[in-house]
Simulated assay, not measured.
Amino acid sequence: MAPTRTAIVVGGGIAGPVAALALRRAGIEATVHEAHDGTADGVGGALSIAPNGRAALDLVGLDRVGEPMNAIVLQNHRGRTVTEIRQPMQFTWRADLYRRLYDLAVGAGVRVHHGQRLVDVSESATGVRAVFADGSVSEEADVLVGADGIRSTVRRLIDPAAPEPRYSGLLGFGARVEGVGLPPTGDRMYMAFGRRAFFGYQSFADGSGVWFANLPHPYAGWDEVRKTPNEEWLHRLAGAFSGDAVPALELLRRTAPADLVSSGPMEDLPHVPQWHRGRMVLVGDSAHATSPSSGQGASLAAESAVELARALRDLPYRQAFAAYERARRARVERVIAEAHRTNSGKAAGPVGRLVRDALLPLFARMATPARTAWKFDHRIDWEARVLAA
C-alpha cells in the first residue's frame, strides 16, 4: 500500500488546523475545508489548555497561549474554601486560540477553503474526494480527516448509526468583563458549587476579569438558546446565584448583555464505536467530545491530531488508523467519564447537593499530582516510530 501523501481535513475550528499542521510536519500535504463562509474570529467562549495540550501544540509550532491558571480554588455556596488544587493550566479564549492556529497554518502553506459544507464522500481504489453542498468536489487525496465537531458529518458518513451527543443537563455561559471591581486573583481561578448553579471567575491585575457559569436547565438546543435574549439569560443567572456568598451577582451586574457568551448545551460523546472506515477517520470532538468541565477538550484534540499524523507518517492508512485509535481511545474515554461525573455534581438536586458538599473535601484530597499525572503529564514522542498491531 502506498504511503499517505495528501489529506483532506474537514473542519476549520481548533482540531482542523492542528491536524493540518501535524500532517504537514509528517510530510503530508493537507487542505482544510470549512463549512462557514468566513473565519471564526470573535466566536466562542473561554477554555483552558492543560500541560498535556500545551506539549501537543508545541509539536505543531504553537508556543504559550493565554494567561496562567495554576490553581483552582474550590468553594461552596457560602464562599468557604474547600480546597486549592494545583493545576498548571493556561486560560484563553477560543477565538484567540483559533486565530493563532489559523495564522500558523496559513503561514505554513496550508490552504483553507471557506463556505464548503460537506454532504458526501466518494472513495476509489486510489483516493477520496469530498462533495460539498454547493456541488463542488475537492481534489482527490489519500485520506479524509473529519475534524468537524460534535455534530460531525464525517462521523455519520463513517457510521450512519453513530450516537448523538449526550446532554449533561447544563447550559454554559460566560463573559469577559473590563472592570470587575474585585482584587486580582493572580494565577488562581475560583470555582464555586452554588446552591442552584456552578460559577467560576478569575480577575487580573489590569482590572479586567472573566467568569463562567453552568446553569442546570432542561435541554435547550442552540436555536432556543439564541432566541432567548441575553438580558433574559443574565436575569435567570442572577436568580440562580441569589443568596450565594460568591461574587456572581456583582460580575453579572457588570456584564453588558452584548458581551454575554453562551457555549450552549454542555454535551459529550461517551463512546463512538467507529472512528474510521475506508479512507476516512475522525479526530477531536467528532470522535471524542468531552464536556467543557473536563478542561481538556482542546488539549485532547491536539493530542489526537498529533498521534494521527505520526501514525500516517509511519504506516499505510488502514494500519495507521487502527494504531491511532488504539493509542487514543482508552485515554479520551476516561477523561470524558470523569467530566461526566463532575457535571452530575453541578446539576445535583437538593439531596444530591447535600451529599456532594459533604464529599467535596474527600474528592479534593484525592486530586493530588500523583493521581492526576495520567492526565496532565501525558507527552507524545514525535520521533518514536509508530508500529502496527
Rank of each mutant, 00 (worst) to 15 (best):
R5W: 04
G13E: 02
I14A: 05
G16Q: 02
A19N: 05
A20I: 01
E29L: 04
T31G: 06
E34R: 13
E34T: 15
V43W: 10
L47K: 00
I49H: 08
A50N: 05
P51K: 08
G53V: 03
G53I: 01
L57P: 15
G61D: 03
L62T: 06
L62H: 07
R64P: 14
V65D: 10
M69T: 10
Q87D: 09
M89S: 06
Q90R: 07
D96R: 08
D96I: 08
L104A: 13
A105D: 07
G107S: 03
G127N: 02
V137M: 13
G146S: 11
G149Y: 05
I150M: 08
R156Y: 14
L157F: 14
P160A: 10
P160W: 09
A161N: 14
E164R: 08
R166G: 08
L170F: 04
A175T: 09
D187W: 09
M191S: 11
F193Q: 09
Y201H: 15
S208V: 03
A220V: 13
W222D: 09
K227S: 14
E232M: 09
G239S: 01
A240L: 01
D244W: 11
L249F: 02
L249H: 07
V261P: 13
S262H: 06
V283A: 09
H288T: 05
S291R: 00
S291I: 03
Q296C: 07
S299R: 06
S304H: 13
A305C: 07
A309W: 02
L312G: 05
A322H: 14
Y324L: 00
R326I: 11
A327L: 06
A327Q: 07
A330K: 09
V332S: 05
E333W: 11
A339N: 13
L354E: 02
L354K: 00
A358N: 04
L360A: 09
P361T: 06
F363N: 07
R365F: 09
A370K: 13
K375E: 11
R379I: 00
V386A: 04
L387H: 02
A388G: 14
A388D: 08
